[in-house]
Design a binder for these strands. Structure first.
Length: 448
RNA sequence: GUGGUUGUAGUUCAGCUGGUUAGAACGCCUGAUUGUGGUUCAGGAGGUCGCCGGUUCAAAUCCGGUCUUCCACCCCA
């Protein structure tokens, strides 16, 4: 059996899936627009140099690089005798939407007035091994505001997370942390230059516990003295206020830690004014996020019974700097549409009534009758009633079956008799009842 | 990138330790019902058992490779 197939980690979406996917995209983009963000799109491909080095070592490995083509590929293949060493073209598939956005901002800086609020819903690609909630092609829904240092942006993004989750009826926890707090911790234990290693290890606290984290730190070569100093971090359970108080004692003396605490405090305080329930957001100092470019607040949204986050983001102070535009800070988050879909599907959160239904199907009795129906169809459609005529004069049974499977509410039969009398035989597919109606009556019954 | 796992009809799966024509359910098609679906009944069509190679008198079944699925690690939406 050699049926055609699609690449590993990619999926087709049939009509049933698309209805649900569009429900998610609609909900998200509606919220984005409501907060004043405007949509942009960027190419699927970026220059490889734009992407490399922005996501950390691991990220670079997962970028889909594109091979050279034609003569230049042949030339390179000949050069390497074993023929294995492939050479890359200038392009690679984008890994996320944030870096292409930063590139876009720098490139179009003269046409953009800051602060610039944009959203972007497009697929990204990662050369990853697929597993639960992890695909090689998936959609990210990004919202970012760039060119403003105000923490009100962070507050707004939390509101957006809260609103999207509420709208989709997803029960999830919004987690908040700050890279400056993590830097403060690293400083206090005397390992400032090992912040990434420390935070990556800390990030696994939920999964591997205190012992696991300590083991990893040991392996990474963090001094045992430093690890001992880190211990107060491990029992940080409690309210956000309680955690902040403890942080105050722990890292309040460092400049960077002090700043991080202040930022978190400010964000949490302002959220109260936005009617966000205090327990819907949790300060989690083990939240790290591997992406290298974050510098301030970091966010993540996790659901029970789902292995990975459905949304993540944070502030990046100098992503545009890499492309030559200094002193432009941005902050943004990204919803993973495919993971949201999986969560909603698992937990049965899609509304029952989102299937696109067909209001009316006309049975095709033959050429003359079909022609007659075309005029009626036009009238229905002019009234925004979704309707179609079965294209072939197939057997009645087949046409009825088609109507049934397509979820048609009504089937209209117009044969010789009906044409002669100027009347339509309308069958209600739910009750099975039939009635003789005029076109006006049919339109009326559909609109109601 | 590392480790494990899966692959049999359109779909979900059965097929014991290798042994004649590979099964079920659902779906699909036809008819009962030549202008009536969703129910019922009767019948029917679908598979070179992921692909390539090996062992054997004999392979869906054993072995190797490869691709794919799912899962864990790494990392992440």
């Amino acid at each position: 059996m050699s049926k055609p197939s699609i690449p590993k980690g990619t999926r087709d979406f049939g009509p049933k899936e698309m209805v649900k996917r569009n429900y998610i995209f609609d909900a998200i983009s509606t919220v984005f627009q409501k907060y004043g963000y405007r949509s942009i799109e960027t190419p699927a491909m970026e220059k490889t140099e734009t992407l490399l080095g922005k996501y950390g070592e691991e990220g670079d490995r997962l970028i889909f690089k594109i091979l050279k083509r034609g003569a230049s590929l042949e030339k390179d293949l000949q050069k390497s005798k074993n023929g294995k060493k492939a050479t890359y073209a200038e392009e690679a598939l984008r890994y996320d939407l944030t870096v292409p956005f930063a590139r876009y901002v720098v490139q179009n800086q003269n046409d953009i007035s800051f602060p610039f609020k944009r959203y972007q819903i497009q697929p990204v690609w990662r050369a990853d091994r697929p597993q639960k909630g992890r695909y090689r092609e998936f959609y990210q829904c990004d919202v970012d505001v760039i060119g403003s240092n105000s923490l009100l942006n962070e507050v707004e993004l939390v509101q957006i997370m809260d609103e999207v989750l509420g709208k989709l009826n997803i029960n999830a926890k919004i987690k908040l942390n700050n890279r400056k707090i993590l830097a403060g911790i690293a400083e206090v234990i005397g390992e400032s230059d090992r912040m990434i290693d420390i935070t990556v290890a800390l990030d696994k606290f939920d999964k591997v516990g205190q012992v696991g984290v300590i083991n990893e730190l040991n392996e990474k070569g963090i001094s045992s003295k430093a690890i001992t100093k880190l211990e107060p971090i491990f029992d940080f359970a409690g309210t956000n206020e309680f955690k902040l108080e403890k942080l105050e004692v722990l890292i309040g003396t460092t400049d960077i830690g002090r700043k991080g605490i202040d930022e978190v405090q400010s964000i949490l305080k302002n959220l109260i004014a936005c009617n966000i329930k205090p327990d819907s957001i949790e300060l989690d100092i083990t939240l790290a996020r591997g992406l290298n470019y974050y510098t301030g607040a970091i966010f993540e949204v996790v659901c029970d019974d789902f292995p990975s986050s459905i949304c993540g983001g944070g502030r990046y102070d100098d992503l545009t700097g890499i492309f030559g535009l200094k002193d432009i800070s941005g902050v943004g988050i990204s919803f993973g549409a495919d993971r949201i879909y999986d969560v909603m599907d698992d937990q049965n959160l899609f509304p029952q009534n989102i299937e696109t239904i067909l209001d009316v199907l006309f049975v095709n009795f033959g050429e003359k009758e079909a022609l007659y129906c075309l005029g009626l169809l036009a009238q229905l459609r002019a009234n925004e009633i979704s309707s179609e005529l079965y294209p072939d004069s197939a057997k009645m049974k087949k046409q009825m079956k088609y109507a049934n499977e397509k979820g048609a509410r009504k089937v209209v039969m117009v044969g010789e008799t009906e044409i002669a009398n100027g009347i339509l035989t309308v069958k209600d597919m739910e009750t099975g009842e039939q009635a003789s109606l005029t076109i006006e009556q049919l339109i009326h019954s559909c609109v109601v």
